[in-house]
């Protein structure tokens, strides 16, 4: 039973890997290296007195997909929120260690989180379009950046919707209310909205967990396409999904409730899924817990 599951996961990941490699080669041709690279050194996060994540050190390569996997409550989303400092908004959260984006410490005093978030976009677990038209949703970020000219906005909206693979479905109805779209379309709209500010990095927090299989497939295709131009960090509960779409996988685990979560293993997705270094990783990906 367990071995059957495991080999199935491996087969999927091996197949995903070969196509991922093709993608990676294209990337090198189309986009400059060194934009959208994260380096985390001894990152710890505390909610009030309680340390929830301890000593995470890892690199996030540019123009590639990094998957964060692990059981519920292991701090994946919290770690993700460190990368655009959204934890700042939750209050009572302390992040220590260093997090550098393209060599610049994003937690430094001089860094305005508002500017950082223009460079590091986020897509949330549930589609959360604003209660306005499709067009206005996508134009929201650029307008904040001060872009007012109609033709310029039109171009950004079209480009973002194309990159999020939604353009063909909505090009005739940009004035329609975003709530009229299906859940999957709303989520791709949220991706387009995040892309409209031309971020170097896109953070995705279980972006397909509230969606049906077909919509999930479309989101995954979008991710595969997007990594040519942006760095993607995706939190997922779905290990097949991690195996299919990511180049690098990080496995996090909180072994006991009174202990902080730690990074157990990080490496090439193919390696993590087929030949993990740590027995806990192997136990998790073969479905023995979590």
């Amino acid at each position: 039973m367990v071995t059957g599951l495991r080999s199935a996961v491996m087969a999927v990941s091996a197949a995903a890997w070969s196509s991922a490699e093709e993608g990676a080669r294209v990337v090198e041709e189309t986009s400059p290296q060194g934009s959208g690279r994260f380096e985390l050194r001894s990152v710890s996060v505390a909610y009030g007195p309680e340390t929830v994540i301890e000593d995470v050190t890892m690199n996030i390569p540019p123009q590639a997909v990094t998957a964060l996997i692990g059981p519920s409550g292991c701090g994946k989303s919290t770690l993700l929120r460190c990368l655009n400092r959204m934890n700042d908004e939750l209050g009572n959260v302390r992040v220590s260690g260093t997090i550098a984006l393209d060599g610049q410490d994003i937690m430094a005093r001089g860094v305005d989180p508002v500017d950082l978030r223009m460079r590091v976009g986020q897509v949330f677990q549930r589609p959360n379009p604003f209660p306005m038209s499709i067009y206005d949703n996508v134009a929201y970020g650029p307008r904040t950046q001060g872009i007012r000219r109609r033709d310029e906005l039109d171009a950004i909206v079209e480009d973002s919707l194309r990159r999020a693979a939604l353009w063909d479905e909505v090009k005739g109805s940009l004035k329609k209310h975003a709530f009229d779209l299906s859940g999957g379309q709303q989520q791709r709209l949220c991706i387009a909205r995040a892309l409209a500010t031309h971020p170097e990095v896109l953070l995705m927090d279980e972006p397909a967990s509230a969606l049906d299989p077909i919509s999930t497939q479309q989101i995954e295709d979008t991710v595969a396409e997007l990594k040519r131009s942006v760095t993607i960090v995706i939190v997922t509960h779905n290990m097949q999904q991690a195996a299919r779409i990511s180049d690098q996988t990080a496995f996090m685990l909180r072994e006991r409730l009174d202990m902080p979560a730690r990074l157990i293993e990080v490496g090439e997705t193919r390696k993590v899924f087929t030949n993990p270094d740590d027995p806990r990783t192997e136990a998790y990906i073969t479905g023995r817990f979590g």
Binding site: N84, M86, E89, V114, D115, L116, R117, M118, G121, Q122, F124, R126, N128, P129, F130, P131, M132, Y140, G141, T144, Q145, C190, R193, A194, T197
Partner: peptide, 25 residues
Amino acid sequence: SSLRHASLALGNTRWQTTYKVTIPA
């Protein structure tokens, strides 16, 4: 609050988020 978070994550300040998203909503 997911709407507020979406706006903040798009590089808006809390005040911009308030008058552009929260009050209209």
